[in-house]
């Protein structure tokens, strides 16, 4: 059951992938009592970097101070290890399917430079929004919906609704 899409490469059937992803998520809840996450790990690296540059700034700030303590390093955290696992897992799958390659993926209608600028701005917005929304597509939407939290459904609708709205304005980037 392969899903041919990108030229010369095959992906796993989306429903099979979704079922497997659901099982990973279910196992995560069963073992840890919480769902999956991603943006939280990046937040930990931000907290670590700011704490290293100026400990006094980090401990006096209303936001960073929530995530630093004297006996626990901010990188010694479940999500950080989980995201390191994601890197390794994706690498293994990429190796298995022959997709390991350094490249900038973009529509033939735009340059690599445009793509990278869009990726940078998108990352800044997503990072900012994930803090305001208390989690990203993994932690707030996917995991939040699996436990039937209202917050998860609202976040998902806001993300995808805005995606469709914004799609018209930036269509030249993609189609």
């Amino acid at each position: 059951m392969n899903n041919k899409s990108e030229r010369g490469t095959t992906y796993l059937n989306p429903y099979v992938s979704g079922f497997l992803l659901g099982l990973v998520l279910l196992a995560t809840f069963y073992i840890t009592g919480r769902g999956l996450g991603a943006s939280g790990a990046i937040k930990s690296t931000v907290v670590t970097a700011v704490d290293a540059v100026s400990h006094s700034h980090a401990s006096s700030s209303g936001y960073y101070s929530q995530f630093i303590s004297d006996d626990e390093h901010p990188l010694n955290n479940f999500l950080v290890f989980e995201v390191l696992g994601v890197l390794a897992g994706a690498f293994l799958s990429g190796a298995l399917w022959g997709r390991l390659k350094f490249k900038v993926e973009h529509s033939p209608k735009i340059t690599s430079r445009t793509r990278l600028l869009a990726a940078l701005s998108g990352g800044v917005l997503f990072g900012f929004g994930s803090q305001m929304g208390r989690g990203c597509t993994s932690g707030a939407a996917l995991s939040g919906m699996a436990v039937m939290s209202t917050a998860g459904f609202i976040t998902m609708m806001a993300i995808f609704g805005t995606g469709y709205l914004g799609a018209w304005f930036v269509r030249k980037l993609w189609i």
């Binding site: 917005l125 929004g129 929304g133 990203c136 976040t155």
Partner: peptide, 12 residues
């Protein structure tokens, strides 16, 4: 937060 993430998604 979701709206900001949505714009981030479609741009990035």
């Amino acid at each position: 937060g979701g709206v900001i993430m949505g714009f981030g998604f479609i741009l990035g």
